[in-house]
């Protein structure tokens, strides 16, 4: 509608339109939420009934877990370096340098490791899953699976979600280890902070619970990413253009979900 015709509308018309838009948004959110809940339920049933084959899970573990190690390690190494560098810059001659150890370790374990690994996995795995399943949907391969009596949730969805749930804590653990190591090396080179001093600072503020918190995040993110990716992939319509559109929406949806979940973690688990 043009600006002129919009201005011709009265306040009650505008209010009606605003309510209608809000209603449509809520309806869409409810539709997605309902479909995701059904998908999760269906996958749970498939797992309990042992309908997911070991071969499919192992194949997905290779694609999702093993093939992601390198990119996750590179990202983690850079995170460690950046955290250390920026921390060092902010603390110059005001705070004892050994605090750097705590800053790097806590930042990497509580936040950077799980969140940035999740962001990398959204691009590396989430987008792939949506595009792959979306292409299968629009080219009738999902219909073909159903026509031969195979359940797409059991064959396509559950192995990917299970593989991601298993892979994410392992990848985040690796990312944490590499991030802390590169952070320590970086602090040594640029600030002259020895490893003993670095770990002295790290131990001062260390809680074992932090590692559990980090892995809990990894587990939740590891479930959220493939569930959204599968959900979006299986509702793809509209040919190649539809696959592109859905993949974009899926990446936005996954990223926002990870950031919202990340924001919910401290009030729920750190107080």
């Amino acid at each position: 509608m043009s600006r002129q015709s919009l201005s011709a509308l009265g306040p009650s018309d505008l209010a009606n339109r605003a309510f209608a838009a809000v209603g449509r948004w809520f309806s869409l959110v409810a539709e997605h939420a309902g479909q995701i809940a059904l998908l999760v339920w269906h996958m749970g049933v498939a797992c309990v009934r042992l309908r997911v084959t070991r071969r499919d899970i192992l194949r997905q573990l290779h694609i999702i877990g093993i093939q992601s190690i390198m990119i996750v390690l590179i990202a983690a190494a850079l995170i460690g370096v950046v955290t250390s560098q920026q921390g060092g810059y902010q603390m110059q001659s005001q705070i004892p340098l050994y605090v750097m150890g705590s800053v790097v370790v806590e930042s990497v374990i509580l936040e950077m490791g799980p969140v940035l690994t999740a962001i990398v996995m959204i691009g590396r795995v989430g987008a792939r899953i949506t595009a792959e399943l979306g292409t299968m949907k629009v080219s009738e391969q999902v219909d073909a699976l159903e026509s031969v009596g195979r359940d797409p949730i059991e064959v396509l969805a559950a192995p990917r979600v299970l593989a991601m749930i298993v892979s994410m804590p392992l990848l985040v653990s690796l990312a944490n280890l590499v991030g802390i190591t590169t952070g320590m090396i970086s602090a040594q080179w640029t600030l002259g902070l020895g490893s003993e001093t670095f770990f002295y600072g790290a131990r001062l503020f260390w809680h074992s619970y932090d590692m559990f918190y980090s892995l809990m995040k990894a587990l939740v993110f590891g479930a959220a990413i493939p569930v959204i990716a599968v959900h979006m992939g299986l509702r793809t319509t509209g040919g190649a253009e539809g696959v592109g559109r859905t993949t974009t929406h899926s990446v936005v949806f996954m990223t926002l979900t990870i950031l919202v979940l990340d924001a919910l973690f401290p009030p729920l688990f750190l107080n």
Binding site: M136, S139, D143, A144, V148, G149
Partner: peptide
């Protein structure tokens, strides 16, 4: 579904499976 065979417009073969596996999956 076990009683019915469905031939799709553009074949709808599974891209990641070879011909043998594509045919095998047609057996209930």
């Amino acid at each position: 579904r076990r009683k019915v065979g469905y031939v799709f417009q553009y074949a709808a073969l599974f891209d990641s499976l070879n011909v043998y596996e594509n045919v095998e999956i047609g057996i209930p």
